[in-house]
Design a protein around this nucleic acid. Structure first.
Length: 721
DNA sequence: AGCACGCCGACT
DNA sequence: GTCGGCGTGCTC
């Protein structure tokens, strides 16, 4: 007697092996069981996906290969996890196998059965006495005599926090927690988790942050509150920066229930957590929650879906929510599906920084740092305070140009200019990485008159050093008065060496740095207590960007950057956010001036509604890559034509297929890229269409005339078009 | 995607 | 004569 199992394996998205594969097994293994199966000459990790069938004896039945093993002692992945994977695969147009297998720790795939068994054995040793060595019994980590969870209760919550916490406890959500920077959102997360863990001895919480470098801070807060990493509450991290062994360990802790709290980046949304009761998505507006390759899922949107599946509360938190979430949480009779919670005030006596707009029309032509901004920076230095200046362009200058023949430093492989880096005298392509030494003379005409155009962070650092050359620091605890001003630069370039970022951040914290120059990465997450001035040097480019989400990102960035300033009560009264702009009356800056996110959101949403853009419509992109732009577009246009076959599909008349166009970065590393936008006022109609269209896309790709196509992919709810 | 099989150029 | 280039095709 044998059974037929349907098993998911990691199959490429567009291969013929799209669905689950069938294998023979002596045992009727439950769905969610991890197995190893032969595929061709390989032996792969698989997940049993459906209930086993008794194998019939139809003569035409194809001979199935038997599974090669079971990962013994590992509880099957539960129904909610499987449904999450199913949904994500369906919604984002990928195969279940791809989604499921890439959601599991890589070591589970790579290690042999024996190696995994050994790992599990070593993990379970402390629990061996329970006779259930591989699955921790519910509440196992909370052993008698161990420290109770949440001994450190933190400070007394503010009235706003208390109110929000009681709403969180009594309502069901999903919640959008709209709280100003410094309003104490993290404290609300901590207390919500604390409350949950205290009232339910098994419950688990998932807390997500957008970027890896924000996890250490968060981990510190949580371990401080809930005990050490392997202490009573079992806090584990999940992000791509961890070693394979760490990832497996953390995953197992969550899977067995031993870890009560999982902190992580977007990938953590797929963590197996059998008792998940709370999901927090911090900085929910952050674009990093959208995966940008493979299955392009939004961890924030999946969080809401998973919350419903698990019966878990979901808290999306932000000081500048995404317009989608803001719209979904609109109050009133025709309100949205989310519940909006407000925490408008900063904790303590800290105030939001004073926003100052410098009208660059009244500054000398070509000025980089305006006179009043320079004065303000000097004032900070004299007071022993710090300034943070940011410019969203790394390198010394974005282009090098020959004045005699008009040659420009174009990348030979990409549709972009190579950036001049003065520090190592190189021209570097920020898209394909091609790096060469800066030519002494123009490569086209030999003229020596080649010069940088525009400026990046390197040049800004150099420029500031010149402007502040005569300025002397006052006496500090560390140094005597009269030393030179210290400027530090933090961007992706200064960050290459390992640990360099940490040293630089430490120097800033220690007060050894007077002015911090960098790209937007310095504006995110790090709390610099002595910074009392934050300045955006040239944010205007974004205002007229073709990307309709650009203003939203800029507003969020500026609000977040401003929030860096004056977190300390002693400094907050004189902390300032400076914006140099040629458009000081632009509504974005007007709203920024009064820290008025709701006004900004209202204005943006009105525009979006008039233009039928998200959240008032749903979008998807088909992207294509080929050696020639023509081949990429030909495929897309053929795919577009094939859609006519779906005319009978319900809701087809509400689908708009736009023509194929080159992507804004048309060529990267000699690969031409094109895309096609699909839009619908109805998300359901779009979903139905995409699902039906998928097979036609595959068939189109298989046609001999589209041999030249390198790859194609669908991006549902794309962030940029 | 892997990993085969398969048919043509420069090497022990 | 063989090692190896990557073109085509299959994997329950």
């Amino acid at each position: 007697m044998s059974y037929t199992l349907s098993v998911l394996v990691q199959t490429p998205a567009h291969s013929a092996l799209a669905g689950a594969l069938s294998y023979e097994s002596e045992l009727a293994l439950a769905p969610g069981t991890l197995v190893r199966v032969p595929l061709g000459k390989r032996d792969l990790l698989g997940v049993v996906w459906q209930d086993a069938d008794l194998t019939g004896h139809e003569p035409e039945a194809m001979a199935l290969r038997p599974i090669s093993g079971v990962l013994e002692g590992m509880a099957p992945l539960n129904r909610q996890w499987r449904e999450l994977v199913n949904f994500a695969a369906r919604y984002y147009q990928r195969s279940c196998g791809e989604v499921a297998l890439s959601a599991l720790p890589p070591q589970l795939r790579d290690l042999t059965l024996a190696q995994v068994a050994r790992k599990l054995q070593s993990k379970s040793r402390p629990l061996a006495a329970t006779k259930e060595p591989l699955v921790a019994p519910p509440g196992a980590p909370l052993e008698q005599g161990s420290e109770p969870i949440g001994t450190d209760a933190g400070v007394t919550p503010s009235d706003e926090q208390t109110l929000v916490l009681s709403e969180l406890a009594t309502q069901s959500g999903p919640f959008l927690l709209y709280g100003a920077t410094g309003s104490g959102k993290t404290e609300v997360y901590l207390r919500s988790v604390q409350q949950l863990l205290a009232q339910d001895p098994n419950a688990q919480a998932l807390v997500m942050v957008p970027e890896i470098n924000l996890t250490p801070q968060l981990l510190a807060r949580f371990t401080q509150r809930f005990g050490t990493q392997h202490g009573p509450a079992g806090v584990v991290c999940m992000h791509s920066g961890m070693t394979p062994a760490q990832r497996l360990n953390g995953w197992l802790m969550a899977h067995t229930g031993a870890a009560r709290i999982v902190l992580g980046t977007r990938m953590a949304i797929f963590a197996s957590m059998p008792h998940l009761k709370l999901i927090v998505v911090d900085e929910e507006h952050d674009p990093s929650y959208k995966q940008q390759e493979g299955s392009r899922y939004s961890a924030r949107d999946l969080a809401v879906y998973r919350g419903r599946l698990e019966g878990a509360r979901v808290i999306l938190g932000s000081a500048t929510p995404s317009l989608e979430s803001w719209h979904l949480s609109r109050p009133g009779a025709q309100g949205g599906r989310y519940q909006r919670l407000l925490m408008p005030s900063r904790i303590g006596e800290g105030q939001l920084p004073w926003v100052r707009r410098v009208d660059m029309n009244h500054q000398p032509k070509g000025a980089v740092i305006s006179a009043p901004l320079l004065e303000a920076i000097k004032t900070r230095i004299a007071r022993g305070e710090q300034s943070m200046v940011f410019l969203n362009r790394r390198g010394y200058a974005p282009v090098l140009q020959c004045h005699s023949c008009d040659w420009k430093s174009e990348c030979p492989h990409c549709s972009a200019f190579r950036v001049f880096h003065k520090i190592d005298r190189t021209l570097r392509c920020h898209h394909c990485g091609l790096t060469d030494r800066v030519p002494r003379a123009c490569p086209a005409c030999g003229d020596l008159d080649i010069a940088p155009i525009g400026r990046g962070t390197e040049q800004l650092e150099e420029h500031l050093a010149q402007l502040l050359a005569e300025v002397r620091r006052p006496a500090t605890a560390l140094a005597q008065a009269g030393t030179a001003v210290r400027i530090a630069r933090i961007d992706a370039d200064s960050n290459r060496k390992k640990g360099h970022l940490q040293t630089q951040l430490a120097q800033v914290h220690a007060g050894e740095v007077d002015v911090l120059v960098g790209t937007q990465m310095i504006a995110k997450g790090h709390d610099f207590r002595r910074i009392t001035l934050v300045a955006a040097i040239n944010p205007d480019g974004v205002l007229f960007s073709s990307d309709f989400r650009a203003p939203e990102r800029l507003f969020s960035l500026l609000m977040q950057a401003g929030g860096r300033a004056g977190r300390e009560r002693d400094f907050s009264e004189r902390s300032e956010m400076w914006v140099q702009t040629f458009y000081p009356q632009h509504p974005l800056f007007v709203a920024l001036k009064s820290h008025d996110y709701p006004a900004f959101a209202q204005q943006q949403l009105k525009q979006r509604e008039q233009a039928n853009l998200p959240p008032f419509s749903s979008q998807a992109l088909v992207r294509a890559e080929a050696r020639s732009q023509q081949a990429a577009q030909d495929f897309l246009m053929a795919a577009r034509a094939s859609a006519a076959q779906l005319a009978d599909l319900p809701g087809f008349d509400r689908i708009t297929l736009y023509p194929a166009v080159p992507m804004s970065m048309q060529r990267i590393a000699n690969v031409e890229r094109a895309q096609m936008l699909i839009e619908s006022p109805s998300r359901t109609a779009l979903q139905r269409f995409l699902s039906a269209w998928h097979t036609l896309l595959q068939a189109t790709r298989a046609l001999p005339e589209h041999k030249g196509l390198i790859r194609w992919a669908v991006d549902v709810d794309p962030l940029a078009i």
